[in-house]
């Protein structure tokens, strides 16, 4: 007797089997030891850190990559940010190790181990699933500079410079992390650093900026200067 399985049952079974094996970039958090001064990291810089092509960030801060041994988050990270498979990456590091050009990076078994190691190790940078608690570490936003280079600013609104602050020569630079929608509008603005008295005005202005449309959501860093002598 031939047993026929309904297609929907097969599809559901497929989802159950394969869903846990697949993760996407949006499911990954890049974390770092709080000693790192940055809150964002360009994707190209992240790649060169994890390929051990550099051991410091652009600002000179020492960094040490930490990898997971295997799993869907590990695979997704390699695919999304390094453009390599696990086997490729293993050969890449082995070539470095056996030619005397670099060490094998630290490999840990789970998200929890990565968080614990990153929390206690100066300069450590790793990745975990988005649901994992990040107590003791900071989360870095990965900025795709290629995307951001393609997103041109077409409408710029200048921030109001409160007259009182200007008169008192209070100025400085406000650094903001901006998320741009595929349509080009600014979706979210987060303060990264700078003078907090000026941030409100800067955030209000940036929210009204309009960029060229793009294929996906883009995150980039914006700096706004307030010069009292101008």
């Amino acid at each position: 007797m031939k047993i026929r399985y309904p297609r929907i049952f097969l599809a559901a079974a497929g989802l159950i089997i394969f869903a846990p094996l697949t993760a996407f970039a949006s499911d990954i958090k890049v974390i770092a030891n709080p000693s790192l001064k940055v809150d964002t990291i360009p994707a190209a810089e992240l790649k060169s850190v994890f390929l051990e092509q550099r051991n410091s960030l652009a600002d000179g801060t020492h960094v040490e990559p930490v990898l997971e041994k295997s799993g869907p988050v590990h695979d997704a990270f390699l695919r999304q940010y390094l453009g390599r498979t696990e086997d490729d990456l293993r050969s890449y590091f082995q070539a470095m190790v056996f030619s005397g050009r670099g060490p094998m990076p630290k490999e840990l078994r789970s998200d929890a181990e990565v968080v614990a190691y990153v929390a206690k190790t100066r300069g450590a940078i790793g990745y975990i699933s988005a649901e994992t608690s990040t107590e003791g570490v900071k989360t870095l936003t990965v900025v795709n500079t290629q995307d951001s280079a393609q997103r041109k600013l077409i409408t710029r609104v200048e921030p109001d410079y409160p007259e009182t602050l200007k008169r008192l020569s209070i100025g400085g630079t406000v650094r903001l992390q901006v998320t741009i929608s595929p349509k080009g509008t600014v979706e979210t603005v987060a303060l990264l650093g700078g003078n907090p008295i000026l941030s409100e005005s800067a955030e209000a202005a940036v929210k009204r900026w309009i960029y060229t449309p793009g294929p996906s959501r883009t995150t980039l860093e914006v700096s706004i200067s307030f010069d009292p002598h101008r």
Binding site: N55, S56, H62, V97, F98, G100, G102, P103, G123
Partner: peptide, 18 residues
């Protein structure tokens, strides 16, 4: 056959031999 040992002495200095 080959055997190597290496160590990161400081943030920037690494030594090793095979």
């Amino acid at each position: 056959m080959a055997l190597n040992a290496s160590s990161q002495i400081t943030d920037k200095l690494r030594v090793g031999a095979q």
